[in-house]
Each structure stands twice: as structure tokens, then as C-alpha cells.
Computed example of a mutant assay.
Amino acid sequence: MIGRLRGPLLEVGDEDAIVEAGGVGYIVRCGVRTLAAMPKPDAEILLHIESQTREDGTRLYGFLNKDERQAFQILLTVQGVGPKAALSVLDVLTPVQLAQAVAQDDKASVGRANGVGPKLALRIVVELKGKPLTTAVFEPVALRPDEPLKPTVNGESVAALMGLGVSETQARLAVETALRDLGADAALPLVIRTALKNLSK
């Protein structure tokens, strides 16, 4: 089993990346958030890997930190959640945000993930109760149980682009790239303008 890969980043596609390790190019499936945070080709990268073996072979899933891999593994324990749905959830919620959503029974936030309907979102929230989604310190008591997750610049920017007819995958990639360049505290209008510029390149 492969636990992590370190080496030059050869290519970045819409759904996966190719990382060279020991002279072999490994195709690694990644979420949009992970792909957007990757360096330029030829730069060295370290990915934490989860391997999934099925009848058609072994597929590698890559994450930039251990928390994301851990959340992915735990999401897969939920009935009806496969790798694609798990990646979709982590595209819209970080592990800490997912833990917060679970603690608050906020199935609406989980249901924002592409391909995750209301029933599956509810199952995720119910079945993940008490499970260690992140190693970060998280205090749900500091929040009211009925208080929903606040809209984020990331989420609102993606929604704005999708309202303009941009596909969800393209919108998320463009926004993540914009936030990486501008910083996490960038204002919403600036993020949207920058993301639109990224799409026009």
C-alpha cells in the first residue's frame, strides 16, 4: 500500500495529477481544492495517499495533509459514500468545517457537495457523529447547535460564477486559484473578478 508520494509534479488535469516517484509517474485522483493548491509542474510535491483496490485495479487518491486523508477515509465508512462523493464533500468543506457541520447537524452545508443529495447528507451527519474527522482542536460548544455555517468567500464566489453559467468544477478551480494568489482574507468582489480572469486565460 502507498501511504504518500514525494517527487516532481508532472501534470495537473481536471480530476487528477501525475507525480513522479522513483522514476514512475503515478496518476493520483484529487479533489478540486487540492488540485488548485498544487504548485507549477516540475516543482516537488508531497501527497498523502489513500489507495482503493477494486476489480478494475488500484486507484490512488491524494491529499495535501493528513487531516484531509483522514476525513476522506472516515467519509468512506458512511453507507452510500464512495470516493467521488467523499472528494466532493471535501471540496466544499475542510475537515474542520465538516466536523463543525456534523456537530451542528448542518446537513445543508454537507448537501452543497456535488452529487450529495439531502438523504445522503443527513446520513453523513448522523453516521459521523463522534468520529475523529480532524486532529485540529475543535470546540463545538463555542457555537449554538442551531447556528448554520456562515457563508464563506470561497462558497459565495463559486455560487456567483455558477450563476454566470460556469460549471461547478471550473468555478471551484478558478476560485481556489484566486484565493491562493490573493490570500484567504481577500474581499468577495476581488475574488470573483480574479476568478473570472483566471477562466479567461
Rank of each mutant, 00 (worst) to 15 (best):
E50K: 12
E127C: 12
L9R: 04
D106K: 04
T194L: 06
R144Y: 14
L93R: 03
Q170V: 12
P132N: 11
K131E: 05
V32Y: 01
L128A: 03
Q52C: 11
E68A: 12
K84Y: 10
G62M: 04
V28N: 04
S157T: 02
E168A: 12
A187H: 11
L128M: 13
G155T: 03
A195V: 02
E55C: 06
P41E: 05
L196Y: 03
V96W: 13
G25K: 08
G13I: 09
L199D: 05
V158F: 07
Q170K: 15
T34Q: 06
G25Q: 06
A113C: 08
E176S: 06
T94K: 05
G155V: 03
A184D: 04
N114M: 13
Q52N: 13
L76M: 11
P151K: 12
Q79N: 15
R59L: 13
V102H: 03
L46Q: 12
L188P: 00
A99P: 03
P118V: 05
L64D: 00
V78F: 05
G130F: 15
F138W: 13
K131Q: 07
L133A: 07
T177Y: 10
G13V: 08
L190M: 14
E176P: 04
R33G: 01
R59W: 13
D42F: 15
E68Q: 13
G3W: 13
A121N: 10
G13C: 02
A36M: 05
T169C: 08
L75T: 06
P118M: 14
K197V: 01
L76C: 09
K129T: 07
D16Q: 12
E139M: 14
V96F: 14
I124Y: 07
L128K: 03
N154P: 07
G183A: 07
E147S: 10
V175P: 00
V158C: 00
A71L: 06
H48Q: 08
D185L: 14
V110P: 04
G3R: 14
I74K: 01
V81K: 01
Q100L: 15
G7H: 07
G7W: 13
M162Y: 15
V24W: 13
F63C: 02
V92I: 08
I74Y: 04
D56I: 09
D42S: 15
L196H: 09
T34C: 10
P140S: 07
V175G: 03
L10M: 15
A113I: 04
G3N: 14
L164W: 11
I45Y: 08
V12T: 14
L143C: 14
G57L: 06
R172Q: 06
Y26V: 04
L182T: 02
T53W: 13
G80K: 07
P145V: 04
D14W: 08
L76Y: 02
G183L: 00
N65V: 04
V125S: 05
V158A: 02
F138P: 04
L90E: 01
V110S: 11
F63V: 08
P8L: 06
L188A: 02
A159H: 00
R69I: 04
Y61A: 05
V96G: 03
A136E: 15
G57Q: 10
V191S: 02
E44N: 06
Q170P: 13
G80S: 02
I45A: 07
G57K: 10
V19A: 04
V78A: 07
K119L: 12
Q104C: 14
V110D: 07
L190I: 15
I27G: 11
L120D: 01
L143K: 09
